[in-house]
Design a protein around this nucleic acid. Sequence first.
DNA 1: CTGAAAGCGCTTACAG
DNA 2: CTGAAAGCGCTTACAG
Lengths: 371, 371
Amino acid sequence: MAEEHEKGQEIGAANPARPGHATMNTIATHLGVSRATVSHVLNGRSAEQRIRPETQSRVLDVARELGYRPNALARSVRSGKSRMIGYLVSDPRYEPYWNTIIGALDEAEQEGFTLKVLSVTPGTFAERIRQCMELRLGGLIVRINQDKSTLFAEANRVGIPVVTVDESVPQSFGVRVNAADALGCREAVSHLVELGHRRIGFISSGFGRQPLEIVPTREGLFLQEMATRGLDVPDGCVTRETMLVYGRRAKAGHDTATGLAATDALLEHPAGRPTAIFCWRDEAALVAIQACHRRGLRVPGDISVVGFSDISAAWLCDPPLTTCQSPWEEMGRTAVRQLVNAVEGEFDPSPREILIPSGLVVRQSSGPAPT
Amino acid sequence: MAEEHEKGQEIGAANPARPGHATMNTIATHLGVSRATVSHVLNGRSAEQRIRPETQSRVLDVARELGYRPNALARSVRSGKSRMIGYLVSDPRYEPYWNTIIGALDEAEQEGFTLKVLSVTPGTFAERIRQCMELRLGGLIVRINQDKSTLFAEANRVGIPVVTVDESVPQSFGVRVNAADALGCREAVSHLVELGHRRIGFISSGFGRQPLEIVPTREGLFLQEMATRGLDVPDGCVTRETMLVYGRRAKAGHDTATGLAATDALLEHPAGRPTAIFCWRDEAALVAIQACHRRGLRVPGDISVVGFSDISAAWLCDPPLTTCQSPWEEMGRTAVRQLVNAVEGEFDPSPREILIPSGLVVRQSSGPAPT
DNA sequence: CTGAAAGCGCTTACAG
DNA sequence: CTGAAAGCGCTTACAG
């Protein structure tokens, strides 16, 4: 048995120095049958091919002995189909985005697909597109901070389905999966209003108007909710921050200065200090809490703070943060499901948006408005 | 031009319904030359093959027009080499592990490799091993919570290099990349002692003794540092927590109860409250701060708290956490570099450990011992 | 019941 | 200067 094993490995080894994988040829020559027979047996076509039971078991036994594994790459070349999905992402360090990737990874694995993450910067975008094409990926998930038209053009040309995640700008190609921020925003404002808050400040993003425009959207939703309730948002009650939070060791450092300044501006507002601050993301909310503490303000006793995303820091901090829980993992799962359907069935490239529900998680950073 | 484009696509398309990729055959028939010539030109072997300059430019032009992309899978099949690295991980939701993946991803992309993340649970381990083999990955990075011997056996048999990350149990196969926790631990204890602390409690992990054993190690290092300085650690000054922190929505929820209890036990220690608490990970430290606040203790005024890892919450919380900054990204980079060397040169499977330096980051959760 | 043959896309000696 | 041929590992009609 051990000798056969050795022998099989030698036959199959391209490079005698390395052990190498056994191939169908290894098994076939080892047994004196053809590769076709081996292929039929190993792929469960013994029945329709009426392979002799004895041959079947001989093939299966040797395959097991040699630790045969089919070469997925060769299969892909042959079939022209790929069960590999690419995930192009600009900010893999940002917790919400890797949560999305995790969701996608999980769903892909359930479906028998594998996921390939490719990080993108303006300088490497063309190179990444090239890699996607060369790897003959079966589908692409995209969350990128820049113009995607070159990618769309090429994917469209060769027929690769594309799904974007968390990109709110309508595009002429592919499916968009997004969070239903409107729901979370409405719940958050309702929550604060029910607690008696009327003067509510908003800390928005100071980043340029990216194609993404997630920022204006959340800010806009907030203003809309306030207007619906007849609540005034005076000039200066929306401020902006630009700190970089992409990972523990982002190049620009953990600069909380703009977040602190944005909060200070709200706290010193001439029309009077707001009793609550709603923030476009959790990081801003947590820094806002730091700013309040520095002034001796208690959260939520003196002022309530609400965030957006529900990052892990939101429940590890003190007080734990009330926040809109965006459905990041589910967004990733949904994106994969779309692509799996596209790969396995017909690809429908008609542009459409899929919204995943979100909701408010009430913790201890929000409380009754002080009287 | 446009017509040629159309024509080329039709020739190259396996399925006429889908556009599909152009192949070397598409180009060759389009030009009336052989595939070999196309291959030579496209791979920069025009010189040694002395391809006529005119032919060269015709090939290059048509390749550009048709948007030709070489099929990386077919290349891999042909060469038997793969520039794809697999990353097997049990807890991709855990921020430190995710950071390690990011570092690996970044380094792999710099080296012209791609990374494939595969998440592993006890129930899917065998399936994941199978996928790694079928995809003919060129190397494997491993961070798994269970016995890895079946993986090692198979990788060894077919000659795939394996590097483990953050696995401190010596193994008979492959390279281990680890953080030099000893450095961080020494700096942390020195820092506290210099601030006048003598009674220091430790919150350790209550998880079973996994093969990983990162926990006993950190606890052991702490005890050793204390002993070196002649400082006593009475019974009960090391407590344990088991909260699950793998992601925002881990199935078991964000249960901070064991962390709070571990802290309470220290604060009520019969030999007197410690003036500082050192924790085996940041999450425990942040929950410890919550527990202190609940008792009206000020951090760091009444008690200092130091963590381990430097997760993002460590600098978003208030007070920002003093912590040992483990070099997660660098560990990922190092692992990839080992594998790249293995793929490109000779594979040296001799077991060895590579330690990446770590250090203390002093923030505001530690201060002078109260008198 | 099984095998010879053609082919997926690519590469590499080897002729001429 | 270029092409015919063999081959990587796999699959699929098609003979017999």
